[in-house]
Design a protein around this nucleic acid. Structure first.
Lengths: 361, 361
DNA sequence: ATGAAAGCGCTAACAC
DNA sequence: GTGTTAGCGCTTTCAT
């Protein structure tokens, strides 16, 4: 029989190299959990716990693990973890456009912050008001296996909507509230914005009111709400249309001048204009001045969006304010509730808006 | 001995259910490649190929696979694939702020589009001009294992910069060009913008020029470039400072009025102001009008950014234009070259800017 | 508090 | 053109 000591000379597992090798495949060096574990002299699981739930490992081991991480230059691979545990901690958000002037980005920003605090990361996808390849876009988003979806722009394609419903992933349609929700909805009614603007102008003794809208869906909803309300208030004859003009998206200052010029030329008795955006309203203000029309005495102007300059124009702009940051936070909260099973599908929340009375109306 | 037929009654592997079961873990149903393969009557690899490289499978099998995908409602799991193949197709982009007015978002948008075409998805991270937890942020981004990084805002923390250098991931610092690149750099010189603005005003016979800057790093660089150039041109005495004022970020229209008022009160002989943004320039225009100063005869005004309204102001705004979309495209192209090993580390590209001459100067 | 074994869903590598 | 085998790096589960 061999002496006991022999066991130690012939270990079942050959000793491994003490420091990790660069990965064979793409990109950068790849130090793994196993490498860290070896250097720290603990098991992979202990390293995993030290990273994900430091509270449950002893202080001494925690320190050794942290040292080993620093020494090896380990970069965590949450992909592998997410894959194994089926917890990607990913939220996908579809936005019509992320460009500098996009009205959605304030909401997206506060939403992202809220998600970040809860441990989720947000991926942005652009859908560009374009229903063409929506299905493909949706499929691509789903393939990243997010735990929840936010649709800041409406998904129009019936096929894509059906697919989202079938997959049954927690989902919030945000910003605009219209139609039946696929799952949940957080936003405000654009039609109601138009309605309230018309009523407000009526309350200010305006009797010949007009609207400059954008040609995108939400702008049209505000326009329609405005026109319907104007009709109901008796501000126009049976077959006489409410004066209106639609400008292209994205709307600009010049569209305000242009729209005001067109409307005032056609209907010199117009005494109020509700505008698609504050920038358009600013254009209307400028056009009014160049025509010698006093604002608000001869012409009342109402904007939309409460842009940062609205308070600085001359006269300052009466406008409709949506608290985008609050909206973003609510979207995040609702989606997290849906993910965690706290809230049920079918949840709808109206965050409303405020008409801010300044000097232009 | 048992008859041969018994074999069929006791198969080694129990027959599997023909249609997939819902996943045990988080979220939604989970149909896998294996399920699709079973339904299509092919191997997993064939399904994988049908998805990732349809050209190499026969048309007949392709069709059967596609049918099976449709019937099972399969959702691709690119996480698993990315994990296995070490090709995440992910790009991480750090931006100071993604809010509605962020100057970076146009570049981010065109960049994202370019990446999308090349098969990459962009994840946005906010770094908020805040060096505090930059290291943690960088670590989190790296953990998602992107194939490349874009830094739209500067990473200040020396530790974070060192870490990025060590990890050796392809990386582009974008927008501002200043200092040594960690890896590659695509942008323009803010200092040069200031210098060129001063020289331009000098060429227009202005001899008492001033600047309203923002208090963020890039704004300060433009201010410094402007002041240095003004000195060099002999526009100020030895110990006499170039009139300047810094407004908080984000800058607003009112800061233009405020800054112009302060500067003009202190130095009534000022005949030109270079502004941090077009919005500030608009404020200066308004303040000038309210003081009865003729623009550009008595006061020249130069903006920065070529905002969409710059062409519509009265007088129209002379300003500095940066082609954000082109910049975004170049950033994407350079990073893709770095990822594919076409370009080498150390690449630096100046995309420049244009001074657009309109009526305000 | 720590470890060992198994396996998530997919694709690389090779065989046919 | 298609199938087989192995294993990516991590976490789950169960054992100690």
């Amino acid at each position: 029989m061999r002496p006991a000591s022999v066991k130690h000379r012939v270990p079942a597992v050959p000793p491994k190299a003490p420091l990790p090798r660069p990965s064979a495949t793409a990109g950068t060096v790849s130090v793994t959990l196993a490498d860290v574990a070896r250097v720290a002299g603990v098991s992979k699981m202990t390293v995993s716990r030290a990273l994900g739930n430091p509270g449950i490992v002893s202080e001494a081991t925690l320190k050794r693990v942290q040292d080993a991480i620093a020494r090896t230059g380990y970069v965590q691979n949450i992909l592998a973890g997410a894959f194994r545990s089926n917890r990607t901690r990913l939220i996908t958000c579809l936005v019509p456009t992320i460009g500098a002037g996009s009205v959605f980005m304030d909401a997206v920003q506060s939403m992202s912050e809220e998600f970040k605090v809860a441990g989720y990361q947000v991926i942005l996808g652009q859908c560009e008001y374009d229903a063409a390849d929506e299905e493909q876009l949706v499929e691509g988003m789903l393939a990243r296996r997010p735990e929840g979806l936010v649709l800041m722009g409406p998904v129009h394609s019936a096929k894509a909507r059906r697919r989202l419903g079938e997959v049954g992933i927690p989902l919030v349609e945000a910003w605009a509230m219209a139609g039946k929700p696929i799952d949940s909805m957080v936003g405000f009614s654009h039609e109601q914005v138009g309605r309230d603007a018309a009523r407000y102008l009526f309350s200010k003794e305006r009797r010949r009111i007009a609207v400059i809208a954008t040609d995108e869906p939400r702008g049209i909803l505000r326009e329609q709400g405005f026109i319907k309300a104007a009709r109901k208030l008796g501000l126009t004859g049976r077959n006489e249309p409410v004066p209106h003009w639609r400008c292209p998206t994205p709307s600009r200052l010049r569209h305000g001048r242009q729209g005001a010029a067109l409307l005032l030329d056609a209907h010199p008795d117009i005494d109020a204009i509700f505008c698609a955006t504050d920038l358009v309203a600013l254009g209307v203000l400028i056009e009014a001045r160049s025509r010698g029309l006093a604002v608000p005495r001869q012409l009342a102007v109402v904007g939309f969006g409460d842009a940062d300059f609205a308070v600085d124009t001359d006269p300052s702009l009466t406008t409709v304010r949506v608290d985008s940051q609050a909206l973003g936070r609510r979207v995040a909260a609702v989606l997290i509730d849906r993910i965690e099973g706290v809230a049920e599908a079918g949840y709808v929340e109206d965050v409303g808006f405020t008409l801010i009375e300044r000097d232009s109306a």
